[in-house]
Each structure stands twice: as C-alpha cells, then as structure tokens.
C-alpha cells in the first residue's frame, strides 16, 4: 500500500516538474478523457433509464433479462452487439461523408461539456462567452446529420436531413433568444457567473417564459417527439440514419443521448442554479437537476404525437421567436424599472 502511495507521489512530482508546454496538453487530454468517460457512462444509464421509464409509462416492464435485477446490463449487451456487427458501407454512398458523419454528430455533444460547471471547481474551462459557445457548438450537429443524409444516397435519408436542417436552423434562434433574458439578469455569459447569479433565486422563477421557450426549442434541437421529424419512423423509415448500422449507427445513438444530457445540463445550470444547493455536495445537485430535465423531456416524448414539418416551422417562427423577443423586452423593462 505504502509503496503504491509512494509511486503515485513520485508520479505526481514528476508530472508537475514537467515544463508547462507539455503539462498543459497532458492536463487537457486528461480532462477530455474524464469528460468522455462521464458522457459514456451517463449515456449507458440514460438509455437504460429511457427504456425503463417509457416501459412504465406504457404499462410494461422494459428490459428485465440481461443483468438482474431490472436488466441493468441490457445497454451494455446492446453496445457489445453493435460493436461486433459487420461494418456495412452500402454501394453508392458518398464514402467520405458517410463515414465521418456519425463522428461529426457526436462531437458537438462533447464540445459543450468544456464549459459546463460540475461543481464550483470542476470545470474544464470557465469560458467568458460560454453561452454563445454552447449555442454555436450545439448547432454543429446539424452538419453531421446533413452529411449523413446526403452521403447515404437514399431518398428517405435526404428527406430526413432536409428536415433536420430546417428544424435546427429555425429552433436555434428562439433557443438562443430565450437564454438572453437570463444573460441580462445575470450580467454574464459565463456559466459559472450564471450559477453565481442564482444564489438567491433560480432563474426558472424569474424567467418562466424563457424557460418554456428554451425547453421547447431544445426538444426540437434534440429531435425528440413531438419534434422527431428527422427520423420519424412511420414516415421516413429512419430518416437520416436509414442506411447506417453497427458501430456507425451506435455513434448516432450515442450522439443523440449525449446531446440530451448536454442540453439537460445546460438547462439545469442556467435555470435551476446548476451545482448550487444546500447540504449535498455540488456534484450531486448537478446530477439531480440534470436528470430532472432528462426525465421531463422523456415524459413529454412518450406522451405527445409528432408534429408535421410545416407546423413545426410555424411554431418556431410565428410563436417561439416573437415570444422570446417579448420575453427579452419584458426583462429589459423590469431591469430598467427595478
């Protein structure tokens, strides 16, 4: 035991003795690995949770067999299955686009985590324009989706990709606008700053309209029912990922849930005070609040029917954007008066 501690100490000493030019990249790499591990573990839990939760909503049990009790190992088994599946690249696809699209979809979900504060000190980088960065990173995913839809050389995929582009572009606007009210009150774009500004009252109470707009547009960006038009099974077979299978498909899946997690984390940070909370350590509050959003989004997903593409655009442009602007105006007025 003592020998182990000694080795560890020696390792640390050696590490900190390194020149900064090497130390910083290594530290960065470690942080990336930590975030990646966090995402993968959470996605495994999320998929299991979604299956169980939707099962209970539908009077079923969900997975029960692999890993008792309650099929905890089901996602693991599915992952292994997907990993060992044959990698099929259909004839006639645009090879490059087809191959890298899943990675492009997954990356933005990873990027977002760079600025999310897990606790007071646990944060990869406390960027001062974090909210803008989040919005920018989040909308990158559409590129990947469009690449997959175009590259698949399949009409259904193309239709799905077109829908995705229309959807994410029109919902990015209200989503960012809805956050502006928060920024105005907090006076900061940094997520740590926003958390700090909520030490007395959460922004969900100060910005209820902004919160609802953010929730709706986030669900749209996440392609969750009622906005799951891009892969609307009964209409477009599987939308943009029709031609994908095995590992590549798994990456889409991973990306979807990682995005869900990221969006929930952002929502928890911006509207529910992030890691701050009494008694429990910050990380626990953070996880609890994030999962609250995850469950809320799942619950809505499994209740609502799907909206149609033109109606979706209508809601986005004719309702959400004006409402978000009204929200900003009201916030500004109140700030002026108070």
């Amino acid at each position: 035991m003592a020998a182990l501690a000694d080795t560890w100490q020696a390792l640390l000493d050696w590490y900190f003795a390194l020149p900064t030019a090497i130390l910083v990249p290594i530290a960065g790499l470690l942080k990336v690995l930590a975030v990646f591990g966090w995402i993968v573990i959470n996605v495994l839990i999320l998929i299991w949770l979604e299956r169980k939760f939707s099962g209970r909503l539908q009077s079923r049990l969900g997975p029960m067999r692999v890993g008792r009790p309650h099929g905890w190992a089901q996602t693991l088994a599915d992952t292994i299955k997907l990993l060992v599946k044959e990698d099929i690249i259909p004839r006639g696809v645009d090879r490059w686009l087809y191959v890298i699209a899943p990675a492009v979809v997954f990356t933005p979900a990873l990027l977002v985590w760079a600025v999310v504060p897990f606790t007071k000190n646990w944060i990869v980088s406390d960027l001062n324009v974090a909210l803008i960065y989040v919005a920018a990173a989040g909308s990158l995913a559409v590129l990947g989706i469009f690449m997959s839809g175009w590259g698949s050389n399949n009409k259904w995929s193309l239709l799905g990709a077109m829908r995705a582009a229309a959807q994410i572009i029109s919902y990015e606007v209200p989503s960012v606008l809805s956050l502006m009210g928060v920024v105005m009150i907090a006076g900061s774009l940094s997520l740590q700053g926003i958390v700090a500004a909520q030490h007395r009252v959460w922004f969900i109470f100060l910005q209820p309209l902004g919160f609802i707009i953010y929730l709706i547009s986030t669900m749209a960006e996440l392609n969750r029912t009622p906005f799951d038009l891009t892969e609307a099974e009964s209409e477009l077979v599987a939308g943009f990922n029709t031609e994908y299978s095995g590992l590549r498909w798994a990456f889409f899946f991973l990306g979807e849930y990682a995005n869900l997690l990221a969006a929930s984390a952002i929502a928890a940070t911006v509207f529910l005070g992030g890691w701050s909370g009494p008694f429990l350590p910050g990380i626990v509050w953070f996880v609890l609040k994030t999962y609250f959003f995850v469950i809320l989004i799942m619950w809505i997903k499994w209740t609502m029917p799907r909206i149609r593409i033109d109606q979706m655009m209508e809601v986005g442009w004719k309702f959400l954007i004006p409402a978000a602007l009204v929200n900003i105006a009201i916030t500004g007025l109140v700030l002026l008066v108070v």
């Binding site: 099962g55 909503l57 009077s59 079923r60 049990l61 619950w299 499994w302």
Partner: peptide, 13 residues
C-alpha cells in the same frame, strides 16, 4: 401517462 406510470405493468415474464 403519469397515471399509467403508477399502474402496475401488465407484462407477463
């Protein structure tokens, strides 16, 4: 859906 969430599942294992 919440009401059904509280109901006992009907699945037969």
């Amino acid at each position: 859906t919440f009401k059904n969430f509280l109901r006992k599942p009907v699945t037969l294992q």
